[in-house]
């Protein structure tokens, strides 16, 4: 019995010392998770999540202080990636309720003041002084900054229009049946 106690104590002690040494020697500065999360986020610094830019949001996500559904422009894909990264269970069908949107400039109201394109974090608005501005739909993240700064309420967010290329079958609903 003494041999067993002795050997286990020795083993525990040695391993403990080794782990202690390794923790000091191989210590990691900062949280690598934050950087990985930041790589997932869109990086447009729109601030819709309530944090100062994507870096702040990544920090909060890494500390589990914010839900993975915090990023409106990221949409469902970002939610799914964040949930996988953080090991969080999330019901994606609920996230789907927020329809993807894009900004639109109402040409009757636009006075060409250039405020919206200066505010756009992804250069998705084209324009010049006293010229009607237009939105590149592919580049727009629907962050809403242009809507905030427009003095004539000429910019607004609309749901992304469905085209022949983007349309696909909806999920079949089975009343009461289980597949």
């Amino acid at each position: 019995m003494f041999i067993a106690i002795f050997s286990l104590t020795l083993l525990g002690g040695a391993l403990g010392l080794f782990l202690g040494y390794a923790a000091r020697r191989l210590a990691v500065e900062g949280n690598p998770l934050v950087e990985e999360i930041q790589a997932i986020l869109p990086g447009s610094q729109c601030g819709q999540c309530g944090f100062p830019g994507c870096a702040g949001a990544a920090q909060a996500l890494a500390n589990h202080e914010a839900p993975v559904t915090l990023c409106p422009p990221g949409g469902r894909e970002v939610v799914a990636l964040l949930a996988a990264k953080l090991g969080v269970e999330v019901n994606l069908t609920e996230v789907a309720d927020t329809v993807p949107q894009v900004a639109e400039v109402l040409e009757d109201l636009c006075i060409g003041c250039t405020r919206c394109y200066k505010a756009c974090p992804t250069d998705a608005i084209l324009g010049a002084a006293k010229q009607i501005h237009a939105v590149f739909r592919e580049a727009c993240t629907a962050c809403g900054k242009c809507v905030e700064v427009c003095p004539t309420e000429a910019t607004r967010l609309i749901p992304v229009p469905v085209t022949l290329q983007s349309w696909y079958w909806s999920k079949p609903s089975l009343q009461g049946a289980t597949a």
Binding site: P42, R76, P172
Partner: peptide, 26 residues
């Protein structure tokens, strides 16, 4: 079901590419 799932997967794939493009722009 399968047609829906393939459409959904394609949309997700497109969304990922979009996120990357957005980050580049930003």
């Amino acid at each position: 079901f399968f047609n829906y799932a393939r459409g959904e997967l394609a949309a997700q794939e497109k969304g990922k590419l979009r996120t990357e493009a957005t980050r580049k722009l930003a």
